[in-house]
Amino acid sequence: MLKVSRLTKRFGGIIAVNDVSFEVKKGEIVGLIGPNGAGKSTLINLISGFYMPDKGSIEFNGKEITKSKMYERAKMGIARTFQNPRLVSNMTALMNVIYAVLGSERGKKISLVEAYGEAMYYLDLFGLLKKRDIVVSDLPIYELRLLELARALALQPKLLLIDEAMAGLNPAEAESVSRLINRIREEFDLTIIWVEHVLKILMKSVERIIVMHYGKLLADGFPEEVVKKPEVVEAYVGEERV
């Protein structure tokens, strides 16, 4: 479904993503981990079209999308969330989701009333129905993360990119977000790449883990095996010292 080949992105002297290649199959849920600054967000930004790569290519469903614009990729079915939620801050929760429904491929075919109904459904899925009329800037981080997921889902994506769904949440909230992600994955037949800074919760939820370090792909495999690899342990120990 997704094929990333020799992807490279530089920022000045920093090589944020360095010659990274991997494939993700349909229906997979892949954890992407690595210490701070490893290049995880940059990789997500490249796949979603927020940044253009300096080198390498991206294929989605057999189609080359390396040069496609962000909105085109969104229409093709690549949705994402952000480490720092990026919603329309002075619109209500409901409007944010309606907006995604309208932006999606089927948005052209349905009426505003239908879009409204669909948006309510997605809000309900994340327990946000009561918050629908609250302006986004008044929502706490936990609800912002849920709302971003609701908005992403409203695009009816095939591939969902999640950039740190747990950051800033307490353990109970993190647990419930994790449960919701697994639930929508099954219900909507999603392929997911899920970035997380900390390992623990991811370990339980994903079938495969990719580790990045200094922009490079350090390891790729089953969670239990990956975390035992010496280079992975070293990368994380290295971080703890910082």
């Binding site: 909105y71 969104a74 990026r86 619109m91 309208l102 932006g103 948005g107 505003l112």
Partner: peptide
């Protein structure tokens, strides 16, 4: 509605697939 949203936040528009 899409125009109103664009007027607030062009970035979010790109994110949800709007051909701005």
């Amino acid at each position: 509605l899409i125009m109103r949203a664009i007027s607030q936040d062009i970035f979010a528009s790109k994110l949800v697939g709007v051909n701005f």
